[in-house]
């Protein structure tokens, strides 16, 4: 089923100069390989079109069920040079979680249990 990424993962973002980093964490272990296949560096680069002017690197952390993305040239020069409201990329985590992914329904249901989404739907 097609769901926004936030149904199956959570994230945290930060900055290193003009590069934003987004760590994407799967809600369950069985979701990690699915996300590793779906959320590629290219897909993320495309998702952040108009925001990320440089390249996107991806690092895999299966031990933490996490993917780490580096979005280069994304923070208006970074640090105090930047004129951006979000000069430190603090909200890039939530921006990535807007991405739509196609994930087996059973895996989404499992994630809903972990994230608390199923309780909120009740």
């Amino acid at each position: 089923m097609k769901v926004p990424l936030w149904r199956v993962a959570f994230a945290r973002s930060g900055d290193k100069g003009d590069t934003a980093n987004v760590g994407l964490i799967a809600f369950t272990e069985s979701l990690y390989p699915v996300l590793a296949e779906l959320v590629t560096a290219d897909k993320v680069k495309q998702h952040f079109k108009g925001i990320c002017r440089g390249s996107v690197d991806r690092y895999e952390l299966p031990n933490l069920c996490a993917l780490n993305f580096l979005l280069h040239e994304s923070l208006g020069g970074g640090g105090t040079v930047s004129l951006m409201l979000d000069a430190q990329g603090k909200t890039f985590s939530a921006a990535l979680l807007r991405m739509e992914v196609d994930v087996a329904e059973e895996l989404v249901r499992e994630a809903d249990e972990v994230s608390g989404w199923s309780e909120r739907l009740e």
């Binding site: 959570f10 930060g14 290193k16 980093n21 760590g23 690092y59 933490l64």
Partner: peptide
């Protein structure tokens, strides 16, 4: 985990 991936490079 969230803190471990914060400001992470390689």
């Amino acid at each position: 985990t969230e803190q471990l991936v914060y400001e992470m490079g390689d």
